[in-house]
Simulated assay, not measured.
Amino acid sequence: MKLTWICTLVVLFQVSSVTLGAEKLQSYNVDRSTITVSGFSSGGGMAMQYHVAFSSEIQGAAIFDGAPFACYKVDFCKNPGKVVVSNLAKEITGLASTKKIDNESNLNGSKVFVFHGTKDTVVDPAFGHKLEKLYQVFGAVTKNEYTIKAVHGFPTNFYGAACGSFSPATHFINNCKYHGSNIAMKHLLGDSLASPASSAEGQLLQYDQTEFGGSAVSSMDPTGYVYIPTGCQDKTRQCKLHIAFHGCLQSKYGS
C-alpha cells in the first residue's frame, strides 16, 4: 500500500519471510512529537494496538476496517455483539497499571480517524463503532466515516476496483470517490495539511528490517518500505513520520 503526503515520511511494514537485500534504513530529521500510525483490516487492528501500547510516542491513528484493542479475547473478534467496550477499557487500564503498555492517560486528546464501509463482510462494521467508543472512553478526539457503501477495502478517489467490489486483484484498494488517506491525515495533523500532488515526486525505498526484528520467527518481513517526499530528502528539514500497516493478502507477495 502506497500512501503519500507532503513532508511526511511514510514507513510501510511488510509481513512475510523473504529477504530482498535492502539497505539499512537511513536517519532522517523526524519531529517526534507528531508520529502517527494507520492500518487497514488486520493492519488497522495493529495500528490501534501499537497506538495504545506506545501512546507516549504515537500521537494519533487512522484505522480502516479494523477491530478494537484486545477484542481477540472475545470470540476472536468474530461477533461484535459479544464485545463489551467497558471490558476492553479495563484490559487497557490493567495492562497500563502493570506497565506492560504506556499509561492510558496519553490517549486523552489524541486524534483518531475511523473508517468502516457499510458493505464490509470480512470485518463487521459494528467493530468500527466499538473501536471508536473505546477510544472515546480515554478522551481521544475522534472522527469517523461509516456511511459509504464500501466492501472490505482501502478507499481512494482515484484508483482501485469499484467501491462495492471485493478485489484481491487491486490488493483491496477500492475507488470509492473518497480520498481516505488525505481525509484521515487532515484529521490527524490538521486541516492546513496540503492536498496531495497529482503524482508522487519523492522516493519509495526498500530498507532492511532485520535490525528491527524482521524475520520469519517474528512474522515481519526482513524488508520494509519508506516513502521520502522530495522536501524530506534534505535532512536539515524536519518532517513528520507516519507508519502504515498493511492488511492480510496486501503485502508485496499478496499473502
Rank of each mutant, 00 (worst) to 15 (best):
H246I: 14
D124N: 13
P125D: 04
C7G: 12
S41W: 04
S219W: 06
T118D: 09
L3G: 03
E132I: 02
N157A: 14
P222D: 03
E57H: 05
T142P: 08
I63M: 01
G43D: 01
M48R: 03
F245A: 12
G164H: 11
F115K: 06
E132A: 03
N103G: 13
D120I: 04
L12K: 15
N108D: 12
V84I: 12
C77Y: 00
P68Q: 00
K119P: 04
D31E: 14
A22D: 14
P68A: 00
K2E: 12
A162Y: 09
A22C: 15
H246L: 09
N144V: 12
L205D: 10
D221E: 13
F64V: 07
Q233V: 05
G117H: 07
S198H: 05
I183V: 15
A126V: 09
S86L: 04
Q14S: 13
E145T: 13
I63G: 00
K143I: 06
I243D: 05
K149D: 15
Q26I: 01
I101L: 05
T4L: 08
P80S: 05
I183R: 09
Y72L: 04
H171S: 12
C163D: 10
L189R: 14
K149I: 10
P125E: 04
E91F: 01
L249E: 10
A126Q: 11
K2Y: 10
N182L: 13
G94Q: 08
F158I: 02
H129C: 00
T156G: 08
T36L: 06
C7Q: 15
Y207Q: 06
G94T: 11
E57C: 02
A62F: 04
K186P: 08
A89I: 00
S215L: 07
F166S: 14
L9M: 11
C163L: 11
K240T: 15
S27Q: 07
Y146L: 10
